[in-house]
Design a binder for these strands. Structure first.
Length: 393
DNA sequence: ATTAATAGCTTC
DNA sequence: GAAGCTATTAAT
């Protein structure tokens, strides 16, 4: 089954970049792919689950309607507003697919936690952690705001570039400050940004749940988290002990690690596509992320494809190569907000000129129409410095 | 004007 | 036939 992961990728159009998920870590897949790739992985390892623990939303709403009302509502309330009113200057349509962001399959890289990430990893770690418990909401909200702001700033111009950076999660400190600066409204009042998260202990996030499996059955745990909007669902089983971030892959050979791996794999093996589609839809709406963007940046697919997948997700069992796409979605969901956002904007910031379009294969029509990446996401200023590494270095 | 949904078509 | 893409259309 693991093979699937690999097997499918190659099939992907030009997404060869990620052909080998794991490989990504080692070096850049393709020239187009900046280095954020690596960072991502690192982050992934570090933070990923900390935040992903949202709460449930009802354990998977089976409702066939995607637009989960709950999520949205909740969010709105919390946030007070999430007007999708950021007006992109030119939001063009899609662009040719690009090398997809390495969605590292969770296969095994869970353990090797922070890698070389100098302070970077550390910083990030904190971020997501914020939510720790109650902060979840703030997190989301904050991100939401950030998202918008970011876009705006970018649109506005280089001048604001700085601003953008500020917001960038370069380091938690910054982050926090940014929040302050921007005067993020206390979302709910419950989670005011804690000035000092536990930066000190990077391992906190550890307990994070080992990635919630898709099969969310038990959703007991997430009751705690305030942000029910996220809804990750559950933790499959018992929370993993606690792999300290510090020790890369040395957990307990044969024990927890093993189990974790297995669990994760399983999770990934059985994704509740319907549920997932719902959640993705919700999240996209929540953050006002257009399908086109998400599809391209995160999934490396076209808007139309995504739309279809979200609306008519096929059961996992019936999926063949299409699983990969869902895995990516899943992965994205699991990531901390911050990372998600980064993925959205960064993932696609290769040189615009570089995009090789036309040749997509199907569709035939694609003539040399050069569609540029949506302005919003095309964070030039930021693109220059991926949040992940260069940023704070 | 922007985005989502759909149709038709291509490739594997 | 599955999976996806582009172009087009509908909806807001």
């Amino acid at each position: 089954m693991t093979m699937e992961n690999m097997g499918e990728l190659p099939a992907d159009q030009q997404i060869n970049g990620d052909s080998s998920n794991e490989t990504a870590t080692q070096s850049q897949p393709s020239p187009q792919e900046p280095d954020y790739v690596n960072p991502q992985e690192e982050l992934d390892t570090n933070i990923t689950r900390s935040e992903a623990i949202p709460v449930s939303v009802s354990s998977m709403i089976d409702s066939s309607e995607y637009r989960s009302q709950m999520g949205d509502v909740t969010y709105h309330t919390l946030n007070g507003r999430m007007s999708p009113s950021y007006s992109p200057n030119n939001y063009a349509t899609l662009t040719p697919l690009q090398p997809l962001p390495p969605i590292s399959t969770v296969s095994d890289k869970f353990n090797h936690v922070n890698v070389s990430g100098p302070n970077v990893s550390g910083s990030f770690t904190l971020m997501p952690q914020n939510n720790g418990l109650g902060a979840g909401i703030m997190d989301m909200a904050a991100y939401g705001h950030r998202y918008e702001k970011l876009n705006m700033s970018m649109n506005m111009g280089p001048t604001l570039g700085a601003t953008a950076m500020t917001m960038m999660p370069g380091n938690n400190l910054n982050y926090q400050q940014s929040l302050g600066s921007y005067g993020y409204p206390p979302q709910n009042g419950l989670a005011s940004p804690k000035s000092e998260p536990k930066m000190a202990s990077p391992n906190s996030y550890v307990e994070s749940y080992a990635a919630s499996p898709m099969r969310m059955d038990h959703n007991a745990a997430r009751l705690h988290s305030p942000n029910s909007m996220m809804v990750m669902n559950g933790i499959h089983n018992a929370p993993t002990p606690s792999p300290h971030s510090e020790s890369p892959q040395r957990d307990r050979p044969g024990t927890s690690l093993d189990i974790q791996k297995q669990q994760q794999q399983q999770e990934i093996e059985e994704i509740n596509t319907k549920e997932l589609a719902q959640r993705i839809s919700s999240e996209l709406k929540r953050y006002s992320i257009p399908q086109a963007v998400f599809a391209q940046r995160v999934l490396c697919r076209s808007q139309g494809t995504l739309s279809d997948l979200l609306r008519n997700p096929k059961p996992w069992s019936k999926l063949k190569s299409g699983r990969e796409t869902f895995r990516r979605m899943w992965k994205w969901l699991q990531e901390p907000e911050f990372q998600r956002m980064s993925a959205l904007r960064l993932a696609a910031s290769p040189q615009q000129g570089d995009l090789r379009l036309s040749g997509q294969g199907a569709g035939g029509g694609a003539r040399t129409r050069n569609r540029r990446v949506p302005a919003d996401f095309r964070v030039d200023s930021i693109a220059t410095e991926p949040p992940t590494s260069p940023n704070m270095l």
